[in-house]
Simulated scan of single mutants.
Amino acid sequence: MPDNPGILAGVRVLDFSRMLSGPYCTMMLADHGAEVIKIESPDGDTSRSNGPYRDDDPDHLWAGYFVSLNRSKKSIVLDLKSAEGRDAALKLAEDADVLLENFRPGVMERLGLGYDDVAEINPKLVYASISGFGNPRNGESPYAKWPSYDVVAQAMGGLMSITGPDAATPMKAGPGVGDIFTGMMMAFAIVAALRHAEHNGEGQFIDVAMYDAMVSLCERIIYQQDIEAVLPVPTGNGHPLLAPFGLFPASDGFISIGVVDDAFWQALTTAMDMPGLADDKRFSDKAGRRENAALVNDIVKGWTTRFTKAELATKLGGKLPFGPVNNARDIMEDPHVAVRGMLAELAHPIPGAKPWTVAANPVRFSKTPAPSLKAAPVLGADNSRYLEFCSRSDKT
């Protein structure tokens, strides 16, 4: 049975990005059928050398970091600092729909591959730029020339200011949210700009700053500061506006509960076999529970700690927002993950080698299923295809 082409089949993307934000963006596009041509330096994307590596990969050719983010893409090697490399990139751009880069502002211009250079030869091209603090075209940040990674975006964009056990202990989020959320926002922007290009025949420049994306992600702290004039700070595993809401101990780990309205509070007190709590005026509505949050949370903690996560799932699952705190092993063994197909196997290019298991794409289309995922490319694997025939207009 032939593979599904995907909803983005026919879209050709030149991917000049590296590390996480850009590759995550183009991963989202490749997962749904876009032809993503990864343009790498002779040394390759930095993430190729970041690990981790399996024991059956003694030459360290297949870093997990690279394998997961660059699946289903093509790879060509160009020295963009050379005239030949620049000319080849421009030739490829003639027939591309999208160009993505995540260098600091000014780098692509110095290489002769800036938006104005490329738009001159392909006015319909969508040119997407990810950077730490945005492109000067849309307002020059005082930090425009600063390098940035996820940890910087999380810090400056507000996420760390509300993450951690208390106000004195800000913390970064576990995953690279500063990169990943920025990449997701850019994937949305690219698809929106492609729609405009299809209808109007004109491409455009897209600019997403990691700092800006984090401000958008942390929208709650902006309206809190505006409306309440209270500086939001870390609240541990609780919530500044709701109770009980957050993390609670079980006898063998932790579970999460989210009581956002009075009906869920009543369901919880019933499950706890404490019906009097539902009628207690201190806790009977959201305002009261917020005012007495410490007491509410202590009562719930005292109850949850008596049971295992599985026992609490039986008592609370389906009755109110509830979930156990899963680690990677728990996730890989969860029936939800299996039935939803959230673990994907990537066949290894070497015959007989063990496939990789990666997190699958979560987006599901009823009419246009995503194609099966392919392995990440060997560095320069597609040189002969694209560098010899880069002037072809057909997108195969």
Rank of each mutant, 00 (worst) to 15 (best):
M1E: 13
D3P: 03
A9T: 09
S17A: 15
M19E: 09
P23N: 04
M27G: 03
D31Y: 02
D31P: 01
D31S: 07
I39M: 00
P42M: 07
N50I: 14
D56M: 02
L61D: 09
L61T: 00
R71Y: 07
S72I: 06
S72N: 06
D79M: 11
L80E: 05
K81D: 13
A83L: 14
E84S: 14
G85W: 01
D87W: 07
A89F: 00
L90Q: 02
K91G: 13
E94Y: 08
D97G: 01
V98H: 00
V107Y: 06
V107P: 05
R110E: 13
L111W: 06
G114P: 07
G114N: 01
Y115W: 07
Y115P: 07
S129H: 00
N135P: 01
R137I: 09
N138F: 12
A144P: 04
A144D: 00
S148A: 15
A155Y: 05
G158S: 04
S161I: 04
G164I: 02
G176D: 04
G176C: 14
A189L: 09
A189G: 14
A189F: 06
A192V: 05
A192K: 08
G201I: 07
G201V: 03
G203A: 00
I206G: 00
V215A: 11
C218I: 00
R220M: 13
I221D: 02
Y223T: 12
Y223V: 14
D226L: 14
A229W: 13
L241G: 03
L242F: 11
P244A: 11
P249S: 10
D252N: 07
D252G: 08
F254S: 13
I255G: 03
V259P: 05
D262L: 08
W265C: 00
A267D: 09
A271V: 01
P275E: 05
P275Q: 00
G276I: 05
L277A: 02
L277R: 01
K281C: 14
R282V: 13
D285Q: 12
K286V: 15
R290Y: 06
A293K: 00
V296N: 05
D298I: 11
D298K: 15
K301V: 11
W303K: 10
W303C: 05
T308L: 11
K319A: 14
L320K: 01
P321L: 04
P324H: 00
E333W: 06
D334S: 08
M342S: 10
L343I: 15
A344H: 04
H348L: 10
I350Y: 11
P351W: 07
G352A: 10
G352E: 08
W356R: 13
A359S: 12
S366H: 11
T368F: 08
P369N: 06
A370E: 06
L373S: 15
K374R: 15
A375E: 01
L379V: 04
Y386V: 07
L387N: 02
C390W: 00
S393P: 09
D394H: 11
K395M: 09
